[in-house]
Design a protein around this nucleic acid. Structure first.
Lengths: 185, 185
DNA sequence: AGTGATGTTCACCGATCAGTATACGTACGA
DNA sequence: TCGTACGTATACTGATCGGTGAACATCACT
């Protein structure tokens, strides 16, 4: 990606996330990245393609963030709920909720690339939970993974409320992991 | 509300929910309701006001739906998780997720009436869970209510995924209620 | 010296946006 | 019978939308 392309992507990421996709026009993105609209179209071809790139970048950054939190844990049991710890610090600087859920809300067309990216992101987290649960020796990793995914998404979705849901969700998640017998311990 | 006003509101509800708020113009709503744009503005004054009305109507319908499901339960313990049963049938004909979460994704401005409606809807459900938990004799209704709310929103948010999360969420919710000692039983 | 990629400037396209103006019809209640 | 509310019809405003055309500048690499 060229220098101008990177500036465009950075501006698009911030504007799309903070203000939503539909209400943000390509002119605004070009202006914020100090670039002509012509350059934007030379680099990305269309707004839809720029949206897809925006989501892909976000997905990559988020996965790296979660993976780092998981690998920082030595205890395999603690590693299972590490994504909840990552969610706490992540959402401190991402107060507009999940970019993918928001994108799906704005783009009803299932053929839009946003749907593929969003679905794969959630499935990635689900698989991660299942793998971690298996490594921790939990007897029913698939069931546990589904429960943890629901708790994770629920905590994320209730962030804008004047309730503290993140810590209770993480606490319940840890309880669920501990409740399952861990033969390897 | 006049007959024309009702037709406009009905068309707005369907279009806003199915296609999103921003991409649906007032011309389209007027056309779908068989009404002139002039009539639309005579009745609602502005698009923002129409959006607020749309969300208020949806909120009212949803609360009635959940309340009916709760009141249909004789056992107070089963009543606690009745909103999860309501969610199952509700989401069968509402496949685009939560209208309020979607609206927040499109309307970042916290001053928009959509934010107030959405927040109050979630808090209403939270209070409902707490009241039902209290009536069922649960010793920690506030804690349980937060957990049930997170599970509910999580199940709702993961609906578009090719995973069955609704039934596992409801099952876990019932387990949480049963786990708490119920002195009244 | 030549060539292709990157980027700029500026003007432009048709379509759509939210919202308004004016004038006319129709039904109902005082 | 007269006024008022409800609704229609058509035309219009200025702004913004996503996207394009054409000409020109800069730089690196061969």
């Amino acid at each position: 990606m060229t220098p101008a392309g990177r500036r465009i992507a950075a501006a698009a990421e911030e504007l799309f996330y903070e203000r939503g996709i539909t209400p943000v026009g390509v002119d605004l993105i070009a202006e914020h990245s100090g670039v002509t609209k012509r350059t934007l179209y030379n680099q990305f071809g269309s707004k839809d393609q720029l949206v897809a790139t925006y989501l892909a970048i976000r997905d990559q950054r988020w996965r790296s963030y979660v993976s780092a939190a998981v690998e920082a844990r030595d205890d395999p049991v603690e590693a299972v709920t590490a994504p909840f710890d990552a969610l706490r610090t992540w959402s401190e600087s991402n107060t507009r909720g999940c970019a993918f859920v928001n994108a799906l809300a704005e783009l009803p067309d299932p053929a839009h690339p946003a749907h593929r990216v969003a679905t794969e992101q959630k499935l990635w987290l689900s698989r991660l939970f299942e793998e971690l649960a298996t490594e921790a020796g939990c007897p029913h990793p698939a069931t546990l993974a589904t429960r943890l995914l629901v708790l994770h998404e629920g905590a994320l979705a209730t962030q804008p409320l004047p309730l503290d849901t993140l810590e209770p969700s993480a606490e319940l998640a840890r309880a669920l992991v501990r409740a399952e017998p861990s033969p390897r311990r």
